[in-house]
Design a binder for these strands. Sequence first.
DNA 1: TGAAAGTACCGAAACGTTTCGGCTGCACCG
DNA 2: CGGTGCAGCCGAAACGTTTCGGTACTTTCA
Lengths: 349, 349
Amino acid sequence: MGTTARDIARHVGLSVTTVSRALNDHSDVAPATKAKIRAVANQLNYHPNAAARTLKINRANALGLDIPLGLHRSYDTIWLEFIGGMAASCARHGVDLLLSATDDTERTPASFERLVRGRRVDGVVVCDIRSDDSRVNWLLESDIPFVAFGRTVGQDDYCYVDVDGAAGAQEAVQYLIRLGHTRIAYLGLDATFGFSHFRRAGYHEALHSIRAHDPELEFEGLTEETAPAVARSVLSCPNRPTAVLASADFLALAVIRAAREAGLSVPTDLSVIVFDDNPSVQREDPPLTAVSQPNRRLGEEAGELLLDRLNRPEQGPGHRLIAPSLIIRSSTGPRPRNMESEGTTATVA
Amino acid sequence: MGTTARDIARHVGLSVTTVSRALNDHSDVAPATKAKIRAVANQLNYHPNAAARTLKINRANALGLDIPLGLHRSYDTIWLEFIGGMAASCARHGVDLLLSATDDTERTPASFERLVRGRRVDGVVVCDIRSDDSRVNWLLESDIPFVAFGRTVGQDDYCYVDVDGAAGAQEAVQYLIRLGHTRIAYLGLDATFGFSHFRRAGYHEALHSIRAHDPELEFEGLTEETAPAVARSVLSCPNRPTAVLASADFLALAVIRAAREAGLSVPTDLSVIVFDDNPSVQREDPPLTAVSQPNRRLGEEAGELLLDRLNRPEQGPGHRLIAPSLIIRSSTGPRPRNMESEGTTATVA
DNA sequence: TGAAAGTACCGAAACGTTTCGGCTGCACCG
DNA sequence: CGGTGCAGCCGAAACGTTTCGGTACTTTCA
C-alpha cells in the first residue's frame, strides 16, 4: 500500500540503509545523493511508518494528555486552551499528541500504563491535580515519565506546571487595597482543588500585610447551588465587605446578582474580581476585572517540560510556575465613601 | 525494559506463538494454558508493544481528530464536549485518540497525510466543515478514511455526522408560532459556517408554512462587533419583531441588551431563542430558551461511524444527522397583546 | 488396528525501520 | 609506491508482534 524506504531505494538504485541515512540527515551520505533521495521521497509521497520507527528506536515520538471531561458541570475554556497550547508545543517538536479523556470519577490512571508500557507514548501530562492527589504517587511509583498540571501541597519531587495562584490572588487584593478597600471577602471552591490552597494563601498574605484579615469574610467549599445564598448573606451583614474576590465565574455572578437584589451597584458600592477570564466574565454587565490564567501558555510549558525531561532524564524534577495577570475592567472601583467609618488604618499603597 | 511476549513464554515454558494466541483469545490454545498465560501476563505487568503490533497487522488502532482551536474568539463548549464523546467511543472500542489541533487559518490537512500514511492512525475525524470546504475533496482524493463533523452543501459522497440545524430552527420557530408570534427575526453568523445554511432553511420553512416570512427580519454575517448595532436597529424599527432566533450566544445577549436599553423586557415584550446551549446562556437573566446541540453525542457518533467504515469499507458513505432539542426556559413567552394589530392571520397550531 | 480427524502446540518468516560494522575506492602522505 | 585515512555506500541484524504452515500426540471410527 504505502511507499516504503525500499521503494525509494529501488527507485534511485541505492540501498535502504542509505535512504534511511539520507532522510534522517546523517553525515556520511553525499549531498547530491541526499538531495536525490529527498526528491524521490517527495515525489513518491513517502511517509515513514511510525510503527516501524518506534519499534526500532524504542521511542514513540508521542505524548499523552489526560484531561478531565465531564467533571465540571460548567465546561471551562481552560481545558481547550490548555490542549491548544500543548498541541502547539508538540507540533513544534514533531511529536504527536494522544488524548486520554477520563470521564469517570474514580480517576484511575491505569490507561496510562497501557499507553506508556505499550510504547504508544513516551510520557504523559496529567491534569487537574488535587491538593492531595493519589495519582502523583502512583505515577512516581510506576516510573512513568509525567508532568502534572497543578500541584499537590507539600510535595514537589515531580515535574509540574502550575499557575501561581498565590501571586494572582495577592495582586488582585493589592489592587483592591490601592483602591482603598480593606474589607475584602473571599469566595472559594472546594478546598481539594489544587489551586484553592494557593489562592487563599495569596489572599491571606496580602491582607495580613495591612493587618486587615477578617476570617468572617472568608468562605470556601462553595458550589453552584450554595453560592447564591452565601452571597446574599455576605452582602446583608451590617459590616459588609466593599470588595469580593471570587474563585470562579459563577461565584462572581452570584455576588453580582445578590448585590443587584440588595440595591447595591457594581462597582460603585461593591468591587468584584473574579478568577479565570472567560467569555461569560467578559460579557457580564459590567465586564469583570479578572485574574487571567494563561492556560494556553501552561499547556505549552507542560509539553516543553515533558519533552525536556524525556530527553534529559538526569535533570530531575523541575517546576514552571506561571504568574496570572490582572485584567482590569469595570467591576472594580474605589471604596465607597459611606463605608469609610471602617476602623482599619489602611495605608493606600 | 518492558516485559515482552518472550518473557511470558519463557516463564510458562511455552512458545511466543502460543502466548500471542492465548492473549488474543484464539481458538487452538487449551483453556488451562490460556488462563495460565493470562495470569503470568498480569503478574509480569505485560502490555503489548503497540508499535510491533501495528507494524505487523498494519492497523494502528487509533483515530485522529482535527479540532479547530484559536479560530473562534469565544471558545465554545462544543469542542470539548465533542472531544469527550469521541474519546468515549474510542475507549469503548479500545482504540486510541490522536489530536491534531489546527491553529492556523490556512487549515491545511497535510498533517493528516503524515498520520494516516505513517500508519499512526487508521482514519481521521475532521471538524468544523464549512459550507464549501476544500478539505473534503482533498481527503476524498487522498483516499484517507475520514468522517466529517459538519456538511458541505450539495455534496454528500462522504461520511459525515451533523446536527440537524434545519430541524432545530424549525422546531424553535414553530414553538414561537404556537406562542402566537408571527414577526420572528433571525440573526445569523457568517454564511460560510456549515450550519448557517441549514438553520436558515429551517427558519424559512417554518415561516413559509404560515406565510409570515419577511426578508427584512433576516440578518446574516453578524459578528461580535456588529451585533449590538444590528440588534438595536432591529428593535427600534416601527414594526419590530416580537421574537428573535439568534444563531449564537453573543447574538442573543446583544439582543437582550438592546431590548433592555429600549425599555423592552424579556420575555414579556420580546421572546428570544438561542442556538447552542452553554453556561453563559443558562446563567443569563432570564435563562434562555435554547436549541441544544448534542455535542457529546455527535462526537460519539463520529467515532462510531469512522470505526464502522474502517471495518467495512464496502459500505460507502453514511450520514448521521442528530436532531437538536429545544430547551424551554424563561426567555420565551406569548406574543405581547399590544402587538396584535399585526396584519398576518396566524393560525395558532 | 490402521487411517483419518482433531487438539495443542511450535518454528520461522514477515512487517519497515535504524544502525553496527564492514567494504570499496580514492586522495594524500612520508 | 605502500600505507593510512576518509568519504560514501552496503548487508544484515534487530526491535516485538502476528500468522502460516507444520508437527506430535490423542481420539475417533470404519
